[in-house]
Amino acid sequence: MSANSRLTIAAHALVWISLYQRQGRGVATSEQIGGSANTNPVVIRRLLGDLRRAGLVESRRGVGAGWSLTRELESITLLDVYEAIEPGPLFAMHRATPNQGCVVGYGIQPAMRGIYEGVEETLRRELARVTLEDVLRDVLAAPR
């Protein structure tokens, strides 16, 4: 199973847009952001579409097209970003109902559901305490 990088790429895009704008530039293009993330601009556009639906970015079409933030980084948490791009649960149950005649098949989902709820609660609590301003500060402080 591969790790999901959507949260990392979305945070990268938002922090990049903010830094770009703080440098006095206008809107950022998905090509520019994709170049920074070394990711196809189509992937960036899809993520930014999710972030737009959540009200974190806005887009401009036509001449001067691109993306800009709708809020300051200090008011956007990693939880805001996570909820915008990952609408479903972190973990899922079986696609088909396990054999209810088997002791493990009968009890596995209730047992795992409780564990998963605890993990998700911890994840949400940790993501809620970190703003994208915190992320930008750490990015700028990273040794080169």
Rank of each mutant, 00 (worst) to 15 (best):
G114E: 07
S30N: 07
I108F: 00
L127T: 03
I115H: 08
S68G: 14
D80H: 00
L19T: 11
G35H: 02
R22H: 14
G34P: 01
G62P: 00
H94Q: 11
T122K: 12
L7Y: 03
S68N: 12
S68D: 08
Q23C: 10
L14Y: 07
L90S: 06
L132T: 13
I76G: 01
R113C: 06
A11F: 00
N38I: 12
S36Q: 09
E120A: 03
D50W: 02
N99H: 04
Y82D: 10
L79I: 03
I85L: 02
R53D: 13
T29H: 04
S36F: 09
E121P: 07
R46L: 11
Q100H: 02
R45N: 15
P89G: 08
R61W: 05
R144W: 13
V63A: 13
S5H: 13
S2M: 15
R113P: 01
D80C: 00
V43L: 07
A13G: 10
R129G: 12
N99W: 03
R113F: 10
V130N: 06
S18F: 14
A111Y: 12
R6T: 10
G114C: 04
T39K: 13
A92H: 12
A3D: 14
T122N: 13
T131H: 01
E86S: 13
I108G: 04
Q21I: 01
L7Q: 02
R71G: 13
S30D: 06
S2R: 15
R144P: 09
D138H: 11
M93A: 09
L136N: 02
G88C: 01
D134E: 06
P41Y: 01
Y116G: 11
Q23N: 12
I33H: 07
R61D: 10
L51R: 06
A111T: 14
E31A: 14
V119T: 02
R22Q: 15
A11I: 07
R71T: 11
A54D: 07
R137H: 09
N4C: 08
R129T: 11
L78P: 04
L69P: 05
L136P: 03
V139S: 01
A28N: 02
E74D: 14
G88F: 05
L69T: 06
A28L: 05
A37S: 09
G118N: 10
M1G: 12
S18E: 15
I115Q: 10
G34S: 04
I33E: 04
S59T: 10
E117I: 12
T8V: 13
M93I: 10
P89H: 09
V139F: 09
R129Y: 08
E121K: 14
R61Y: 08
L69H: 05
A128C: 04
